[in-house]
Design a protein around this nucleic acid. Structure first.
Length: 304
DNA sequence: AAATCGGGCAACCGCGCGCAG
DNA sequence: CCTGCGCGCGGTTGCCCGATT
Protein backbone atom coordinates (compact mmCIF):
# COMPACT_ATOMS: atom_id res chain seq x y z
CA UNK A 1 0.00 0.00 0.00
CA UNK A 2 1.26 3.43 -0.88
CA UNK A 3 4.64 4.40 -2.20
CA UNK A 4 7.93 2.97 -1.02
CA UNK A 5 9.90 5.01 1.53
CA UNK A 6 11.90 7.89 0.06
CA UNK A 7 15.13 6.87 1.75
CA UNK A 8 16.65 4.69 4.42
CA UNK A 9 16.49 7.16 7.25
CA UNK A 10 18.95 5.19 9.32
CA UNK A 11 21.54 5.39 6.60
CA UNK A 12 21.44 9.04 5.59
CA UNK A 13 24.01 11.65 6.44
CA UNK A 14 23.04 14.81 8.30
CA UNK A 15 24.82 18.05 8.96
CA UNK A 16 26.75 20.43 6.74
CA UNK A 17 27.25 19.58 3.10
CA UNK A 18 30.76 19.01 1.77
CA UNK A 19 32.10 20.48 -1.45
CA UNK A 20 32.09 17.02 -2.96
CA UNK A 21 28.42 16.50 -2.16
CA UNK A 22 27.59 19.92 -3.56
CA UNK A 23 29.45 19.11 -6.76
CA UNK A 24 27.61 15.83 -7.20
CA UNK A 25 24.24 17.41 -6.63
CA UNK A 26 25.01 20.35 -8.86
CA UNK A 27 26.29 18.13 -11.64
CA UNK A 28 23.16 16.05 -11.51
CA UNK A 29 20.71 18.93 -11.44
CA UNK A 30 22.51 20.79 -14.19
CA UNK A 31 22.13 17.88 -16.56
CA UNK A 32 18.86 16.33 -15.42
CA UNK A 33 17.11 19.28 -13.85
CA UNK A 34 15.07 19.05 -10.69
CA UNK A 35 12.07 16.94 -9.89
CA UNK A 36 11.61 13.57 -8.22
CA UNK A 37 13.92 14.43 -5.37
CA UNK A 38 13.50 10.96 -3.94
CA UNK A 39 15.69 9.46 -6.62
CA UNK A 40 18.20 12.30 -6.75
CA UNK A 41 20.55 11.05 -3.98
CA UNK A 42 21.04 7.71 -5.73
CA UNK A 43 21.26 9.13 -9.22
CA UNK A 44 23.56 11.97 -8.25
CA UNK A 45 26.46 9.69 -7.38
CA UNK A 46 25.16 7.72 -4.39
CA UNK A 47 24.75 10.69 -2.12
CA UNK A 48 24.00 9.52 1.38
CA UNK A 49 21.41 12.21 1.81
CA UNK A 50 17.65 12.26 2.05
CA UNK A 51 15.94 13.63 -1.04
CA UNK A 52 14.40 16.25 1.13
CA UNK A 53 17.83 17.39 2.24
CA UNK A 54 18.97 17.54 -1.39
CA UNK A 55 16.02 19.69 -2.35
CA UNK A 56 16.73 22.04 0.55
CA UNK A 57 20.41 22.31 -0.27
CA UNK A 58 19.67 22.98 -3.91
CA UNK A 59 16.92 25.54 -3.42
CA UNK A 60 18.70 27.43 -0.67
CA UNK A 61 22.28 27.32 -1.86
CA UNK A 62 23.05 25.69 -5.18
CA UNK A 63 20.21 26.98 -7.34
CA UNK A 64 21.39 29.24 -10.19
CA UNK A 65 20.83 32.98 -9.99
CA UNK A 66 20.80 33.05 -6.21
CA UNK A 67 22.07 36.25 -4.64
CA UNK A 68 24.61 35.71 -1.90
CA UNK A 69 25.38 39.36 -1.17
CA UNK A 70 23.80 41.47 1.54
CA UNK A 71 20.22 42.64 1.31
CA UNK A 72 19.83 46.09 -0.19
CA UNK A 73 17.85 48.94 1.31
CA UNK A 74 15.19 48.41 -1.35
CA UNK A 75 14.92 44.74 -0.51
CA UNK A 76 14.64 45.55 3.18
CA UNK A 77 11.81 47.94 2.57
CA UNK A 78 10.04 45.50 0.33
CA UNK A 79 10.28 42.75 2.91
CA UNK A 80 8.86 44.99 5.60
CA UNK A 81 6.00 46.06 3.38
CA UNK A 82 5.20 42.54 2.28
CA UNK A 83 5.45 41.22 5.81
CA UNK A 84 2.94 43.83 6.89
CA UNK A 85 0.60 42.63 4.19
CA UNK A 86 1.25 38.90 4.23
CA UNK A 87 2.72 38.04 7.58
CA UNK A 88 5.27 35.25 7.77
CA UNK A 89 4.46 33.74 4.41
CA UNK A 90 8.12 33.71 3.50
CA UNK A 91 7.76 31.87 0.24
CA UNK A 92 5.36 34.49 -1.09
CA UNK A 93 7.62 37.28 0.09
CA UNK A 94 10.68 35.60 -1.41
CA UNK A 95 8.86 35.31 -4.74
CA UNK A 96 8.94 39.08 -4.97
CA UNK A 97 12.70 39.18 -4.35
CA UNK A 98 14.59 37.68 -7.28
CA UNK A 99 17.53 35.59 -6.20
CA UNK A 100 16.39 35.30 -2.60
CA UNK A 101 15.05 32.20 -0.95
CA UNK A 102 12.39 31.96 1.69
CA UNK A 103 15.06 30.80 4.11
CA UNK A 104 17.16 33.87 3.31
CA UNK A 105 14.26 36.20 3.90
CA UNK A 106 13.17 34.42 7.05
CA UNK A 107 16.66 34.49 8.55
CA UNK A 108 17.15 38.10 7.64
CA UNK A 109 13.86 39.04 9.18
CA UNK A 110 14.51 37.13 12.39
CA UNK A 111 18.04 38.36 12.86
CA UNK A 112 17.90 41.92 11.57
CA UNK A 113 14.63 43.41 10.50
CA UNK A 114 12.47 42.46 13.46
CA UNK A 115 15.05 43.98 15.80
CA UNK A 116 15.29 47.06 13.66
CA UNK A 117 11.56 47.57 13.79
CA UNK A 118 11.42 47.02 17.53
CA UNK A 119 14.19 49.56 18.04
CA UNK A 120 12.10 52.04 16.14
CA UNK A 121 9.11 51.45 18.34
CA UNK A 122 7.20 49.28 15.90
CA UNK A 123 5.92 45.87 16.80
CA UNK A 124 7.36 43.49 14.18
CA UNK A 125 4.37 41.19 14.35
CA UNK A 126 1.56 43.67 13.92
CA UNK A 127 3.57 46.53 12.41
CA UNK A 128 1.80 48.84 14.78
CA UNK A 129 3.53 51.34 17.05
CA UNK A 130 4.25 49.55 20.29
CA UNK A 131 2.92 52.48 22.30
CA UNK A 132 -0.35 52.21 20.43
CA UNK A 133 -0.33 48.49 20.99
CA UNK A 134 0.11 48.90 24.71
CA UNK A 135 -2.89 51.17 24.76
CA UNK A 136 -4.93 48.55 22.93
CA UNK A 137 -3.86 45.90 25.38
CA UNK A 138 -4.93 48.09 28.25
CA UNK A 139 -8.30 48.54 26.63
CA UNK A 140 -8.81 44.89 25.86
CA UNK A 141 -7.59 43.41 29.11
CA UNK A 142 -10.26 42.63 31.64
CA UNK A 143 -8.09 43.72 34.51
CA UNK A 144 -8.18 47.42 35.26
CA UNK A 145 -5.28 49.62 34.20
CA UNK A 146 -2.57 50.41 36.71
CA UNK A 147 -3.46 52.67 39.56
CA UNK A 148 -2.76 56.36 39.27
CA UNK A 149 0.41 56.02 41.30
CA UNK A 150 1.77 53.10 39.37
CA UNK A 151 4.80 53.45 37.17
CA UNK A 152 3.90 54.50 33.65
CA UNK A 153 4.89 52.39 30.68
CA UNK A 154 8.30 53.16 29.21
CA UNK A 155 8.56 56.06 26.88
CA UNK A 156 8.45 54.72 23.36
CA UNK A 157 8.76 56.51 20.09
CA UNK A 158 5.41 57.74 18.92
CA UNK A 159 4.62 58.00 15.24
CA UNK A 160 1.92 60.59 15.44
CA UNK A 161 3.38 62.49 12.54
CA UNK A 162 3.97 59.47 10.37
CA UNK A 163 0.83 57.79 9.06
CA UNK A 164 2.41 54.41 9.50
CA UNK A 165 -0.52 52.59 10.98
CA UNK A 166 -3.09 54.34 8.84
CA UNK A 167 -1.16 53.43 5.73
CA UNK A 168 -0.72 49.90 6.92
CA UNK A 169 -4.41 49.51 7.61
CA UNK A 170 -5.05 50.84 4.15
CA UNK A 171 -2.66 48.35 2.60
CA UNK A 172 -4.18 45.46 4.49
CA UNK A 173 -7.63 46.55 3.51
CA UNK A 174 -6.58 46.82 -0.12
CA UNK A 175 -5.18 43.31 -0.08
CA UNK A 176 -8.43 42.05 1.32
CA UNK A 177 -10.53 44.11 -1.02
CA UNK A 178 -8.54 43.04 -4.05
CA UNK A 179 -8.67 39.41 -3.13
CA UNK A 180 -12.33 39.61 -2.36
CA UNK A 181 -13.21 41.44 -5.53
CA UNK A 182 -11.16 39.29 -7.85
CA UNK A 183 -12.12 35.95 -6.43
CA UNK A 184 -15.01 34.16 -8.08
CA UNK A 185 -18.27 34.58 -6.28
CA UNK A 186 -18.93 31.85 -3.81
CA UNK A 187 -21.85 31.03 -1.57
CA UNK A 188 -19.84 32.23 1.40
CA UNK A 189 -18.72 35.46 -0.11
CA UNK A 190 -21.65 37.50 1.00
CA UNK A 191 -21.05 37.09 4.67
CA UNK A 192 -17.30 37.02 4.29
CA UNK A 193 -16.38 40.48 5.46
CA UNK A 194 -12.61 40.48 5.38
CA UNK A 195 -11.97 43.38 7.65
CA UNK A 196 -9.33 42.89 10.23
CA UNK A 197 -10.94 45.38 12.56
CA UNK A 198 -14.00 43.22 12.71
CA UNK A 199 -11.97 40.20 13.58
CA UNK A 200 -10.16 42.21 16.19
CA UNK A 201 -13.37 43.43 17.71
CA UNK A 202 -14.79 39.94 17.67
CA UNK A 203 -11.64 38.64 19.21
CA UNK A 204 -11.70 41.18 21.95
CA UNK A 205 -15.30 40.47 22.74
CA UNK A 206 -14.99 36.74 22.63
CA UNK A 207 -11.63 36.19 24.20
CA UNK A 208 -10.64 39.27 26.05
CA UNK A 209 -11.24 37.59 29.35
CA UNK A 210 -8.45 35.17 28.59
CA UNK A 211 -5.97 37.92 27.89
CA UNK A 212 -2.91 38.35 30.06
CA UNK A 213 -2.59 41.58 31.97
CA UNK A 214 -1.09 44.46 29.98
CA UNK A 215 1.77 44.72 32.41
CA UNK A 216 2.75 41.14 31.73
CA UNK A 217 2.59 41.66 28.01
CA UNK A 218 4.64 44.80 28.32
CA UNK A 219 7.24 42.98 30.32
CA UNK A 220 7.45 40.36 27.62
CA UNK A 221 8.00 43.05 25.05
CA UNK A 222 10.72 44.68 27.05
CA UNK A 223 12.46 41.35 27.32
CA UNK A 224 11.86 40.68 23.68
CA UNK A 225 11.15 37.09 24.59
CA UNK A 226 7.45 36.83 24.17
CA UNK A 227 6.34 33.77 22.27
CA UNK A 228 4.72 34.75 19.02
CA UNK A 229 1.45 33.05 19.75
CA UNK A 230 0.94 34.71 23.10
CA UNK A 231 2.66 38.02 22.65
CA UNK A 232 -0.17 40.29 21.84
CA UNK A 233 -3.73 40.19 22.85
CA UNK A 234 -6.40 40.60 20.24
CA UNK A 235 -4.71 42.05 17.22
CA UNK A 236 -1.32 40.74 18.16
CA UNK A 237 -1.31 38.04 15.56
CA UNK A 238 -2.83 40.14 12.90
CA UNK A 239 -0.62 38.79 10.19
CA UNK A 240 1.61 36.35 11.94
CA UNK A 241 1.43 32.63 12.59
CA UNK A 242 -0.95 31.86 9.83
CA UNK A 243 -2.49 28.59 10.71
CA UNK A 244 -2.17 28.56 14.45
CA UNK A 245 -1.14 24.95 14.40
CA UNK A 246 2.45 25.81 13.78
CA UNK A 247 2.70 28.23 16.65
CA UNK A 248 4.53 27.07 19.69
CA UNK A 249 1.77 28.20 21.94
CA UNK A 250 -1.19 27.42 19.77
CA UNK A 251 -3.04 25.91 22.65
CA UNK A 252 -2.48 28.84 24.91
CA UNK A 253 -3.96 31.50 22.77
CA UNK A 254 -7.69 31.42 22.58
CA UNK A 255 -7.80 34.47 20.37
CA UNK A 256 -6.14 32.53 17.60
CA UNK A 257 -9.55 31.66 16.26
CA UNK A 258 -10.33 35.12 15.06
CA UNK A 259 -6.90 35.61 13.56
CA UNK A 260 -6.99 32.24 11.90
CA UNK A 261 -10.43 32.89 10.51
CA UNK A 262 -9.20 36.11 8.98
CA UNK A 263 -6.10 34.54 7.51
CA UNK A 264 -7.94 31.44 6.38
CA UNK A 265 -10.31 33.63 4.45
CA UNK A 266 -7.38 35.17 2.63
CA UNK A 267 -5.82 31.79 2.04
CA UNK A 268 -9.01 30.52 0.50
CA UNK A 269 -8.96 33.39 -1.92
CA UNK A 270 -5.25 32.87 -2.58
CA UNK A 271 -6.04 29.53 -4.09
CA UNK A 272 -8.41 31.04 -6.57
CA UNK A 273 -6.25 33.77 -7.99
CA UNK A 274 -2.71 34.74 -8.85
CA UNK A 275 -1.44 36.18 -5.62
CA UNK A 276 1.97 36.97 -7.03
CA UNK A 277 0.39 39.06 -9.71
CA UNK A 278 -1.74 40.85 -7.18
CA UNK A 279 1.25 41.68 -5.04
CA UNK A 280 3.17 42.94 -8.05
CA UNK A 281 0.26 45.14 -9.06
CA UNK A 282 -0.07 46.57 -5.59
CA UNK A 283 3.59 47.30 -5.22
CA UNK A 284 3.60 49.05 -8.57
CA UNK A 285 0.59 51.14 -7.71
CA UNK A 286 1.33 54.45 -6.00
CA UNK A 287 -2.02 54.29 -4.29
CA UNK A 288 -0.84 51.33 -2.26
CA UNK A 289 2.85 51.70 -1.90
CA UNK A 290 3.86 55.16 -2.89
CA UNK A 291 4.90 54.13 -6.36
CA UNK A 292 8.24 52.66 -5.38
CA UNK A 293 9.83 56.07 -5.49
CA UNK A 294 11.68 55.38 -2.29
CA UNK A 295 9.75 57.87 -0.25
CA UNK A 296 7.04 55.57 0.93
CA UNK A 297 9.08 53.80 3.50
CA UNK A 298 10.20 57.00 5.02
CA UNK A 299 6.64 58.11 5.19
CA UNK A 300 5.86 54.92 6.96
CA UNK A 301 8.49 55.61 9.53
CA UNK A 302 10.89 53.06 8.18
CA UNK A 303 13.65 55.05 6.59
CA UNK A 304 13.86 57.72 9.26
C1' DA B 1 45.93 34.69 25.19
C1' DA B 2 41.99 32.33 26.80
C1' DA B 3 37.20 32.17 27.95
C1' DT B 4 32.69 33.66 27.27
C1' DC B 5 28.96 35.66 24.81
C1' DG B 6 26.01 36.74 21.07
C1' DG B 7 24.75 37.11 16.18
C1' DG B 8 24.18 35.01 11.75
C1' DC B 9 23.16 31.35 8.95
C1' DA B 10 22.67 26.56 7.22
C1' DA B 11 20.21 22.74 8.07
C1' DC B 12 16.80 19.99 10.37
C1' DC B 13 12.10 19.12 12.11
C1' DG B 14 7.32 18.68 11.87
C1' DC B 15 3.07 19.79 9.78
C1' DG B 16 -0.60 20.15 6.08
C1' DC B 17 -1.99 19.16 1.57
C1' DG B 18 -2.22 16.57 -2.59
C1' DC B 19 -1.87 12.48 -4.83
C1' DA B 20 -0.03 7.79 -6.10
C1' DG B 21 -0.76 3.11 -5.33
C1' DC C 1 -11.91 4.60 -0.35
C1' DC C 2 -7.90 4.26 2.43
C1' DT C 3 -3.10 4.53 3.45
C1' DG C 4 1.04 6.69 3.47
C1' DC C 5 4.66 9.17 0.89
C1' DG C 6 6.36 13.52 -1.75
C1' DC C 7 6.51 18.15 -1.63
C1' DG C 8 6.44 22.72 0.09
C1' DC C 9 6.35 25.54 3.88
C1' DG C 10 7.28 27.86 8.40
C1' DG C 11 9.44 27.22 12.87
C1' DT C 12 13.36 25.88 15.38
C1' DT C 13 17.95 24.26 16.37
C1' DG C 14 22.80 23.99 16.47
C1' DC C 15 27.20 25.23 14.74
C1' DC C 16 30.55 28.63 13.45
C1' DC C 17 32.84 32.82 13.99
C1' DG C 18 33.70 37.46 15.45
C1' DA C 19 33.37 40.63 19.44
C1' DT C 20 33.97 41.39 24.11
C1' DT C 21 35.73 40.65 28.71
Amino acid sequence: MGRPPCCDKANVKKGPWTAEEDAKLLAYTSTHGTGNWTSVPQRAGRLKRCGKSCRLRYTNYLRPNLKHENFTQEEEELIVTLHAMLGSRWSLIANQLPGRTDNDVKNYWNTKLSKKLRQRGIDPITHRPIADLMQSIGTLAIRPPPAAGAAPPPCLPVFHGAPYFAALQHQQQQVVTHVDADAPASPDSQHLQLNWSDFLADDAAGHGADAPAPQAALAQYQEGSAPAATTVVGGGRAFGDVDGASGVGAGTYDGAGAASAFIDAILDCDKEMAVDQLIAEMLADPAYYGGGGGSSSSELGWGC
